[in-house]
Design a protein around this nucleic acid. Structure first.
Length: 889
RNA sequence: GCCGGGAUGGUGAAAUUGGUAGACACAAGGGACUUAAAAUCCCUCGGCCGCAAGGCUGUACGGGUUCGAUUCCCGUUCCCGGCACCA
């Protein structure tokens, strides 16, 4: 799929595959331009990297082998244009790539396209263009944008997930998962638009209504395939400890998401229409079991269905529950409603009758679809009981606290300090003892036991969408659901469909649908559901690693090349992927390991989660109740006295629209900023430098282009200094320049290790400031050489050009990364801050290695110390070596 | 609502994460050069008091620990990300 490699933008060279030159190409125009011309030097540098195949890599054959470094940025969704978040993401990756390359690593940095997905179908509906064409056009444009930014990418490894040669292996591994019982079929709950007769994504539901039709959305249960990620829950949780290179916050979020909890699953027995049954529930608070005053079941629960048969009011309520949202955030914030079923179950320990309610907050898909109600010690149950006048019985007490029915208090739910009361034989027991005793008693009655439960749910992968990877199943009237045999893979998605919003167009494609049953040979139908696009992105990092031969033959999913490059040494991507994508990828790697495809347990050794790039969001309600978004260029801001944005008007007609605050740049909210203008105006180096300088990578960044000028000015100054240095013939006295440069280098190397690139950029600026102050210093040439190398990962084009111009060497990429010289850093005196009672009062200079007594004496003798001690004697003198002296009086 | 993160000058930020708050830049103001503009260069730039020297104060807000807190602890507010079909 990768386009033939061309020497970018060099007219005379284009057209064919470039053969690796025998002699190192050497960019050297006749005379150095005085003026900084980014477009000229950037094209030349990029042509050089292409011609020398600087970033096309393979398994290392040198002896001794160089260490490998696999640097990967999350691949983009081809939404149309790059936005600033992409520039940030890929510049970070490129800085690390170039830095490691200069430090002697064999570095792979690939790129590809997360090419299936909903926006392509939306564009198809709007423009009547097949999603495939829209997607491929976007890829072509965005690829050219990436290339113009000068990223050191191995384009020969480019992949797009919408290509059959890629998604063939989604299908192949899915079949392996079916064989191993990891993939299975069950019902799933989806958003259903009754007018368009189609399944809606959560994003397409606006305040409970379909985004196009405005019709109230219904919940609908349909069959779908699931991947048993919960089978790996324990390993996914415990293996977080094997990832020291991951941010703590991400590991914490994943641990909370997996949500391992030990509790008790137990049953309330009942007799209904003469038949005995058990209502199963799960709780982490079995110690409060004596406080149960009701049970609540989901609207879809069999007991609810049974009770509704002769109760139209309840039937109506259940129907109402089915119109709610399927999203957890909505469920957690909606008004909790319920209705009694008239069915009573028996408390397993007290044998008291407990009424069963239907609750809109209980989900059929969580556990057993039923919960116990303990209003006294659960905040939600408390509110529910107050609302419907249910009994509230205190069964936990905390010393010194008074229980009151007037309102909820935090301590009611305290596990740590509470003991059981009003609980018969369990009175006086603490949390753990009570849970153990109660679980034991339930077990003897055969009505329950301790159970480990996970919050994590299995991964539903079926989507009723066209633009995705077909699920390789054939439906036969005789044989049922039959897997497509391996030798018939891939099941190829036709690329010429144009969705119209009324459901999956594959259902109308006889040439796709009709097939023969692989088992019995009779006419059968293909499955038209496609896979969640998270499947595509769960293993692409492994595919990039395959050797050229495997890319050509496509006879295996991964190969020895994958084994060589894996795991990814540095993965870089937005914090928004902290849970889903990263967890699915970890799961997928473990499945591939268990199928024998890879040896690694984990895909990503080190993770950098970059902060989001935010921009203003402007929207307006449509007459159908949907939302349309406006890009920031289309609007005029309205501000209050404090200068804060409060609203906006459309430039086109002055009509006022809604201001939605700031949010992450996205296609759907139309608030992305295209970097193209910036690149054309100031060049790729300025865009990259500005992006790195703006803030540390992990921090959220509100977009503003103020500061771009400063980055551009810096590039011009670097160029001008290089030009002057080249023509300089005389040299003067040595001053402090060398020490200053090496100190800044030490700082920059330290910051690079911390992945804090904004201060690396400012170290470059400080180096130039120092050089400009001492241009005739005999160490200016050495210093400028250090500056160019430190700058080169961030602004590689200008560094490349000046490195050659000033004759430092043929190729800065081949240069060694600079290390500070200890000899250049030594000094014989240090300055210590002088404080009196913690307040800054001056400074003292002492010899390096001066002892404590000497420092104390110097400090106490200082004029300012005398003044602020006001004649009192020092109670204590704190000396922090190399930093400060604090006199406490 | 739950989970995670954040808040420092007019703005982006720095402070080797318990030791000089505001490095490096942007914007603004003043000046030099120029017929003029652009570009470039120099100076000022948290707040309050002061002619100045200098002093007080200041890292979202309220407490606490410490000789010393942007950094650690407790509480509050606001903002951002995620919440399983946006990717």
């Amino acid at each position: 799929m990768a386009a033939p490699l061309r020497a970018a933008n060099k007219g005379g060279r284009g057209g064919g595959r470039i053969i690796r030159p025998l002699v190192e190409s050497h960019f050297s125009p006749p005379a150095m331009q005085e003026k900084y011309q980014p477009n000229v030097i950037e094209q030349a540098a990029q042509a050089h990297w292409n011609a020398t195949r600087a970033f096309n890599v393979a398994q290392d054959a040198s002896k001794p082998p160089r260490p490998k470094y696999y640097c990967l940025s999350m691949f983009p969704y081809p939404s149309g244009k790059l936005h600033m978040g992409h520039v940030r993401n890929y510049t970070i990756g490129d800085v690390l790539t170039r830095w490691h390359k200069m430090r002697g690593f064999n570095v792979l940095q690939p790129m590809g396209w997360d090419a299936f997905g909903l926006p392509a179908e939306n564009a198809a509906i709007q423009n009547k263009v097949p999603p495939a064409k829209w997607t491929y056009d976007n890829i072509a444009y965005m690829k050219q944008q990436l290339q113009s930014l000068g990223f050191g990418l191995d384009w020969e490894r480019e992949l797009a997930t919408c290509k059959p040669e890629y998604y063939k292996w989604n299908q192949w591994l899915f079949l392996r998962m079916l064989e191993k019982g990891i993939a299975y079929k069950k019902t799933q709950v989806v958003n259903w638009d009754p007018v368009d007769q189609t399944v809606l994504a959560n994003e397409q539901v606006i305040e409970g209504r379909g985004w196009r039709t405005g019709a109230p959305v219904e919940k609908r249960e349909i069959p779908g395939y699931y991947l048993g990620i919960t089978q790996y829950a324990d390993e996914l949780l415990s293996a977080l400890d094997t990832l020291p290179g991951w941010p703590e916050r991400v590991k914490l979020m994943q641990a909370n998401w997996i949500g391992k909890s030990t509790g008790v699953r137990f049953a309330f027995p009942y007799t209904l229409d003469g038949e005995a049954g058990k209502l199963w529930v799960f709780t982490t608070r079995a110690d409060t079991i004596m406080g149960v005053t009701f049970c609540a079941v989901a609207a879809e629960h069999p007991l609810a269905t049974h009770a509704a048969k002769n109760n139209p009011e309840l039937a109506a309520f259940i129907e109402e529950c089915k119109h709610g949202s399927v999203m957890e955030a909505d469920l957690a914030t909606m008004e909790k409603k319920g209705m009694p079923t008239g069915i009573f179950v028996e408390h397993p320990l007290t044998r008291k009758q407990v009424e069963v309610w239907v609750g809109n907050y209980v989900l059929m898909s969580y556990g057993d679809g039923a919960v116990m109600g303990v209003p006294s010690h659960d905040e939600r149950d408390f509110a529910f009981a107050k609302k419907y006048g249910l009994e509230i019985k205190q069964v936990i007490s905390v010393a010194g606290q008074e229980f009151s029915l007037d309102g909820w208090q935090e301590w009611y739910a305290d596990k740590q300090n509470g003991v059981c009361v009003n609980s018969g034989k369990y009175d006086g027991l603490g949390y753990e003892a009570a849970v153990d005793a109660i679980a034991a008693d339930l077990a003897t009655k055969n009505l329950g036991e301790k159970k480990v439960q996970f919050r994590l749910r299995d991964w539903g992968v079926s989507r009723q969408r066209y633009w995705g990877c077909p699920i390789p199943i054939i439906h036969c009237d005789v044989c049922g659901s039959v897997p497509v045999p391996d030798d018939q893979l891939p099941v190829v998605l036709p690329e010429d469909c144009v969705p119209d919003g009324s459901g999956n167009p594959l259902n109308k494609r006889a040439d796709f649908l009709d097939c023969a049953c692989p088992k019995c040979g009779k006419p059968a139908k293909r499955e038209t559901d496609t896979m969640d696009t998270f499947v595509d992105s769960s293993w692409y990092y492994a595919r990039y690693g395959v050797d050229a031969a495997t890319r050509t033959a496509n006879d295996q999913m991964v190969d020895a090349g994958t084994q060589y490059w894996m795991p990814v040494d540095q993965y870089i991507g937005g914090i928004e992927h902290a849970i889903l994508h990263l967890l699915y990828s970890r799961f997928w790697t473990k499945v591939m390991r268990d199928v024998g495809l890879v040896k690694q347990d984990e895909p990503f050794a080190n993770l950098l989660t970059q902060g989001m790039v935010l921009n203003h969001i402007f929207s307006r309600r449509t007459d159908k109740g949907g939302i349309e978004y406006f890009s920031p260029e289309e609007v005029e801001l309205v501000r209050n006295e404090a200068g804060h944005v409060t609203g906006a008007t459309l430039k086109a007609n002055g009509s006022s629209i809604d201001y939605g605050g700031v949010g992450t740049m996205s296609k759907s909210k139309r608030n992305g900023v295209d970097p193209q203008h910036l690149i054309e105006q100031h060049g790729a180096d300025t865009a990259r430098f500005f992006m790195m300088f703006a803030s540390p990578p992990e921090q959220t960044l509100e977009w503003s282009d103020s500061g771009v000028e400063g980055a551009y000015r810096f590039m011009k100054r670097v160029w001008a200094f290089g030009h002057a240095l080249k023509n300089q013939t005389t040299s003067g006295e040595a001053g402090g320049l060398r020490r200053e440069i090496h100190l800044l280098l030490k700082q920059a190397n330290y910051d690079l290790g911390k992945l804090q690139f904004n201060t690396v950029a400012s170290a470059c600026m400080k180096m130039l400031n120092a050089l400009e102050k001492a241009p005739a210093d005999p160490h200016a040439k050495e210093g400028f050489g250090i500056l160019l190398r430190v700058l080169s990962p961030i602004a590689p084009h200008i560094a490349h050009a000046l490195w050659i111009e000033l004759d430092y060497g043929p190729d800065i990429l081949q240069a060694e990364w600079p290390e500070p010289l200890e000899a250049a850093l030594v000094q014989d005196e240090v300055e210590l801050v002088l404080q009196v009672n913690g307040k800054l009062r001056g400074s003292i200079k002492v010899k390096v290695g001066a002892d404590r007594t000497a420092i104390e004496a110097a400090a106490l003798a200082h004029e300012m110390a005398q003044k602020f001690m006001e004649g009192k004697s020092a109670k204590k003198v704190v000396v922090v070596p190399g930093r400060l002296v604090n006199i406490v009086v």
